[in-house]
C-alpha cells in the first residue's frame, strides 16, 4: 500500500463541556440565575401577580404594618407596598438595561478601535477614558442629570455614559490580546479587511469578558438608579422604582420600617444575583482547553 492519505475515520469527537454545562455545575451562580429569572418573570407578569393596584391609595390604610391584606404594609399615601415593589421591578430592570445598553453602544466600538488600531488612536481614547474613570461615577451622574434635568431616562443615560469607559477598558484589553492571536494574522493572510477582522474575528472572541462586565454593571446600574432616585434625581412620582420607593419610605422608617427594609432587601438581592451570575460566567467562559497528557 503506497502512502496515500487515508480518510480520517469518523472518530467520535472528544467531549468538551459546553459553556452551559459548566455554568450549570456552578451551584451558586445557578441559584442566582434562578432568583433573577423569578424577578424578571414577576416584572413581566406584574399585573397578574400584584394583589392591589399599585397607584390606588386608601386614606384608611396609611403606614399600616404588614398583614394578610398588605404583605409588606402600606406607605404614607396608603398604597400597597408589595404591589408597588412588584410593579417597580419593571422600571428598575428596564432602567438598568438602558444604562448598560448605552454603555455598550459607546464603550464597545471605542474599545475595539483603540485595541485593534493601537498607536495614537489608542493613546487618545485611553487617556480620555482614564480621565473619565478618575471621576467618582455617581457624582458625575449627578452633574449630568443636573444639566439635563431630573428624569429616569436622563438619569440612566448619565449612568450609561459613566459606565461606558469601564466597558471600553475591558473590550480594549481583550482586543489587545486577541489581536496577537495567530488566527487574526491568518485572517489577514486570507485577505480580510480590517472591518471584517474586527467584526468576525475579534469581537466574538472578546464577548466572554464583555458579558461578565455587562452583567456586573447591570447590578451597579440598578444601585446607581436606586441612589439617584433616592436623591430625587431619577424616577419621578407617581412612577415607582425600587430606589424611589426606598427614598419615599425612608422618612417613615421609625413608624413603619418594613417598606424601607423590603425595598432595600429587594435591591440588594438583585444586585447580588447579578454579581454572582457575572462571577459564574467568568468561571465558565474559559477557553476549551486542548486535551494534552
Amino acid at each position: 500500500m503506497s502512502a496515500t492519505t487515508i480518510n480520517a475515520p469518523a472518530v467520535a469527537l472528544p467531549p468538551t463541556s459546553t459553556f452551559i454545562q459548566r455554568f450549570c455545575r456552578n451551584r451558586t451562580a445557578m441559584v442566582a440565575a434562578i432568583i433573577l429569572l423569578a424577578i424578571v418573570l414577576i416584572a413581566v407578569f406584574a399585573p397578574y401577580i400584584a394583589p392591589h393596584d399599585p397607584a390606588r391609595s386608601s386614606l384608611r390604610a396609611i403606614l399600616k404594618p404588614p398583614s394578610a391584606m398588605y404583605w409588606f404594609g402600606s406607605d404614607d399615601l396608603g398604597r400597597d407596598v408589595a404591589s408597588r415593589l412588584i410593579f417597580a421591578s419593571r422600571l428598575s430592570l428596564v432602567a438598568s438595561l438602558q444604562a448598560v445598553a448605552i454603555a455598550l453602544v459607546i464603550g464597545m466600538p471605542l474599545g475595539l478601535i483603540a485595541g485593534y488600531v493601537g498607536g495614537w488612536v489608542d493613546t487618545i481614547i485611553s487617556r480620555c477614558n482614564d480621565a473619565l474613570m478618575s471621576f467618582p461615577a455617581l457624582i458625575l451622574a449627578v452633574v449630568i442629570v443636573g444639566l439635563m434635568g431630573p428624569s429616569l431616562t436622563n438619569a440612566m443615560t448619565a449612568i450609561g455614559l459613566v459606565y461606558a469607559p469601564r466597558i471600553m477598558r475591558v473590550v480594549r484589553g481583550s482586543t489587545l490580546s486577541v489581536r496577537e492571536e495567530v488566527y487574526v494574522r491568518a485572517a489577514r493572510a486570507t485577505g480580510c479587511s480590517d472591518t471584517r477582522i474586527i467584526l468576525r474575528h475579534v469581537l466574538p472572541n472578546v464577548t466572554g469578558p464583555l458579558v461578565v462586565q455587562a452583567t456586573v454593571l447591570m447590578g451597579q446600574a440598578l444601585l446607581a438608579e436606586a441612589g439617584l432616585s433616592f436623591l430625587g434625581l431619577g424616577t419621578q412620582p407617581p412612577e415607582a422604582s425600587w430606589g424611589a420607593m426606598l427614598g419615599t419610605a425612608f422618612p417613615y422608617m421609625a413608624e413603619s420600617p418594613v417598606p424601607t427594609i423590603a425595598a432595600g432587601v429587594v435591591i440588594s438581592v438583585t444586585v447580588l444575583c447579578f454579581n454572582l451570575i457575572g462571577d459564574g460566567i467568568r468561571d465558565s467562559v474559559g477557553r476549551m482547553r486542548r486535551s494534552g497528557d
Binding site: A3, T5, A8, V11
Partner: peptide, 24 residues
C-alpha cells in the same frame, strides 16, 4: 519512499476502543 502514515487519530481517554486500544 514516502513516510507511511499511521491512519486515524490518537485514541482518547473518553472512548478507548474495545480490545487492543491501537486496533482501529
Amino acid at each position: 519512499h514516502d513516510p507511511i502514515a499511521i491512519p486515524g487519530t490518537v485514541a482518547q481517554a473518553h472512548s478507548w476502543p474495545s480490545g487492543c486500544r491501537f486496533n482501529p
